[in-house]
Design a binder for these strands. Structure first.
Length: 421
RNA sequence: GGAGAGAUGACCGAGCGGCUGAAGGUGCUCGCCUGCUAAGCGAGUGUGGGGGUUAUACUCCACCGAGGGUUCGAAUCCCUCUCUCUCCGCCA
């Protein structure tokens, strides 16, 4: 959410930047009208309340002196009624205003290229060698079926499309990847591991921006104010919601493994084969809360932390900078890491690293106290996948397949396959 | 699910319906002092919003878990909800 005052004072900028994202129905004109009305209501209400307060004081004094205060009390009765009326009108007005403000996306960073969709994203760099796997590399779902470690049919039987049953070494590999990623980020990159709830309430979803606009993307628990998390970003960013952190505590760096649940409404027909797009998938997520002046640098180091996972796994990838039209609602700037998928002969997203500035912090009330300053300020929040585990598994199956049909597991994973018992 | 207790500022913790945005303490910031990583003294220290200012200053309103209600007036009384704790039941 942007600050009300900021929107009011920068109407054309907000409008222009929103349009850069390809959003034309931001209802900025309506904002102006509702915001003006809001302040008129406030002015009148506050004046009346001020009068009520002073007169009530007078009534108290009169009563203390045992004098008659009936006339004043009668007058205040009317004032109170009028205030109540106006408050009702104000809150109706606020509701409409809020709906608009909550629907305005974050402003994109000046370094973000203007573009319509992912075709206009900019490649920042590539890493690794694309393996030579012959003319027609096998797809991960073929390989998985062949090895008996990936069973989509039985998952469909239980749950429907877009679910997978991992078996044997498949599930073992998934678990190894999760542990490898968590170990790397905690032990080498200094993140604190957390294991958050997988169901969260609507206030939490609102803070990070999934609600109110994107409810159709979420799975909701019937009759409860609970949603299944689409990413660990949601609970982890909210760990410190409505708290004021000390400056010396920053930056807060968290890493969390969670399953993620997405309805994938609107992506019918996309990635229908395999495990690239699932209703449930595992992800290791990196989340940072930091001081505003550092968030740009923190984004770069977050990206580097995520990239290192692929480097250690020796999987070829590239980094792209998302253009304005492809940028998520709450983000000001996003880098995607895309891993090479041989069967598709292209790079596919495996991580998304974003800076949200104070957009989420304002919604969630995440503050910090700057050293030597009286007023607390909003932190900046960032997050990125480190990495999407299912897609990593798919990438390993496709990239590391040997001519004899076996998979050569990346060396760094060896410790996770040791015999323990 | 049943019975009871509670929810106050960054934290702890007071608070007869009016003089409480809220005592006291801790922490933090600034200053002073002190021959030494401490102690002492003084001052300051919530959030949001409106008006005002180039920006300060200043000023007004709201907020004591959330939402309603009673009242001229609510942190204080009433109702509903949420959460926490204790006991019982159930349960991985």
């Amino acid at each position: 959410m942007l600050e009300l005052r900021f929107i009011r004072e920068n109407l054309s900028l907000v409008k222009e930047k929103t349009e850069r994202r390809g959003i034309t129905d931001s209802r900025i004109e309506e904002f102006e009208e509702l915001d003006k009305k809001r302040r008129e209501f406030l002015f009148e209400i506050e004046n009346l309340r001020n009068r009520r307060k002073t007169v009530s004081q007078k009534i108290a004094d009169l009563k203390k002196k045992k004098e008659d205060a009936e006339a004043l009390i009668k007058e205040m009765r009317d004032v109170g009624a009028r205030v109540k009326e106006l408050e009702k009108e104000l809150s109706a007005n606020d509701e409409k205003l809020n709906e608009i403000v909550m629907g305005i996306p974050n402003l994109c960073d000046e370094s973000v290229p203007v573009g319509q969709d992912e075709s206009e994203n900019i490649e920042v760099r590539t890493w690794g060698e694309i393996p030579d796997l012959g003319p027609k590399p096998k797809a991960h779902f073929e390989i998985g079926a062949e090895l008996g470690i990936l069973d989509l049919e039985r998952a469909a039987k239980m749950s429907g499309a877009r679910f997978v049953l991992l078996k044997g070494l498949g599930s073992r590999l998934e678990r190894a990847l999760i542990n490898f990623m968590l170990d790397l980020h905690t032990q080498k990159h200094g993140y604190e591991e957390v294991l958050p709830p997988f169901l969260v309430n609507s206030a939490t979803m609102t803070a990070t921006g999934q609600l109110p606009k994107f409810e159709q993307d979420l799975f909701k628990v019937q009759d409860w104010d609970l949603y299944m998390i689409p990413t660990a970003e949601v609970p982890v960013t909210n760990i410190h919601s409505n708290e004021t952190l000390a400056e010396k505590e920053l930056p807060k760096k968290y890493v969390a493994y969670t399953p993620c649940f997405r309805s994938e409404a609107g992506s019918h027909g996309k990635d229908t084969r395999g495990i690239i797009r699932q209703h449930q998938f595992d992800k290791v997520e990196l989340v940072k809360l930091c001081e505003p002046e550092n968030s740009n640098d923190e984004l770069e180091s977050l990206l580097a932390d995520a990239e290192e996972v692929l480097q250690l796994l020796k999987l070829p990838y590239r980094v792209v900078l998302l253009c304005s039209g492809d940028l998520g609602f709450s983000a000001t700037k996003t880098y995607d890491i895309e891993v090479w998928m041989p069967a598709q002969n292209k790079y596919r997203e495996i991580s998304s690293c974003s800076n949200f500035l104070d957009f989420q912090a304002r919604r969630g009330g995440i503050r910090y106290r700057p050293r030597g300053k009286k007023k607390s300020g909003l932190v900046h929040t960032l997050n990125g996948s480190g990495l999407a585990v299912g897609r990593t598994l798919a990438a390993i199956l496709e990239n590391c397949r040997q001519p004899d049909g076996t998979i050569k597991i990346p060396e760094v994973l060896a410790p996770y396959f040791e015999k323990r018992f």
